[in-house]
Design a protein around this nucleic acid. Structure first.
Length: 297
DNA sequence: AACAGACTCAACCGCCTGGGG
DNA sequence: CCCCCAGGCGGTTGAGTCTGT
């Protein structure tokens, strides 16, 4: 296409895959399994580069790929996950069984991006971007006129892999009454009852299995949530105003939230992991609950 | 019917990351 | 610590298709 190839591809087929090529690739992977993509074309007898084979398999040939229209449930989940995660399509795709990152990315760029921009400008649920009414056809509307303060399209975000829950005695929140501080302390304690902290006060799960089972939906890992995105988002002001989040630039990140929110998180969503694991609605309702709680004044 | 513009989405790109030597 | 390589990622492209005139 427009760019020069990253490596020599002389003699290799490019462009759309033929049914014959698909058949060869599918049969090869069925026998030999995935991986070793670089050697695959030569071994399988395909005139394609390894990357192309990998992409074709992952985005089109894989047996668990779900073809067909995105359902309304999936659409809503994509929007909410995008609101949380930004353009991390692989992460979003990981929450939508059978959907690929490429498919979701395309769907967003051609449908949801525009829908969010045009239809939900006033909703706090969605990413708000300045509309560009003068723009002509643009297949990627969210990429047009990127703004410095755009907080969702950011490919190099920092993952937060640890959350620091201070001991209640460590909490010294400004302008808090004794009763309010007790509420916060109770909230922290309730989380610590569900989880455990290591010696440094960092959140950890008792073992790997429980860590995985505690994930939201099928495998929503707390480490996948980029808190820097949350802090850059509209949540930032809300949370700062209410002392829900108190980020420290050079210190462990303090996460403090209300008892109600914590109860919703731990009881409604984490406690019943088995039934929730395959239920999109539970995750959506969790996000609803979380946002509503955070949005309370 | 013919054409042009709009739209879709498979495929490609360069860059980044993690593992191994 | 550095280098190399394979794999993975998000951004981008353009051929094919759709739609309006």
């Amino acid at each position: 296409m427009g760019r020069s190839p990253c490596c020599s591809k002389e003699g290799l087929n490019r462009g759309a895959w033929t049914a014959h090529e698909d058949k060869i690739l599918r049969e090869y992977i069925t026998v030999h399994g995935e991986g070793r993509w670089r050697n695959l074309p030569k071994t399988a007898g395909l005139k394609r580069c390894g990357k192309s084979c990998r992409l074709r398999w992952l985005n089109y040939l894989r047996p668990d790929i779900k073809r067909g229209n995105i359902t309304s449930d999936e659409e809503e989940l994509i929007i909410r996950l995008h609101n949380l995660l930004g353009n991390r399509w692989s992460l979003i795709a990981g929450r939508l069984p059978g959907r690929t990152d490429n498919e979701i990315k395309n769907y967003w760029n051609t449908n949801l991006g525009k829908k969010v921009k045009d239809g939900h400008k006033t909703s706090s649920t969605f990413c708000r971007r300045p509309s560009n009414e003068n723009s002509t056809r643009n297949p990627m509307p969210h990429l047009a006129n990127p703004k410095p303060d755009s907080h969702l399209v950011r490919t190099k975000a920092t993952k937060c892999t640890k959350v620091f829950f201070p001991h209640p005695s460590m909490l010294q929140l400004p302008n808090k009454s004794e009763e309010e501080e007790k509420v916060v302390a109770d909230a922290v304690m309730s989380v610590q009852m569900e989880l455990t902290t290591n010696n440094n006060g960092f959140l950890s799960f008792p073992d790997e299995e429980k860590q995985l089972s505690a994930d939201m939906l099928t495998d929503f890992n707390v480490g996948d949530i980029c808190f820097s995105d949350l802090l850059d988002s509209d949540f930032n002001n809300i949370c700062n105003d209410q002392h829900l989040f108190s980020p420290c630039s050079d210190q462990p990140f303090h996460l403090v939230c209300s008892q109600e929110l914590l109860n919703n998180c731990t009881q409604t969503n984490f406690a019943d992991q088995n039934s929730a694991s395959n239920n999109l609605h539970s995750f959506i309702s969790f996000l609803d609950t979380t946002e509503e709680t955070l949005g309370k004044s």
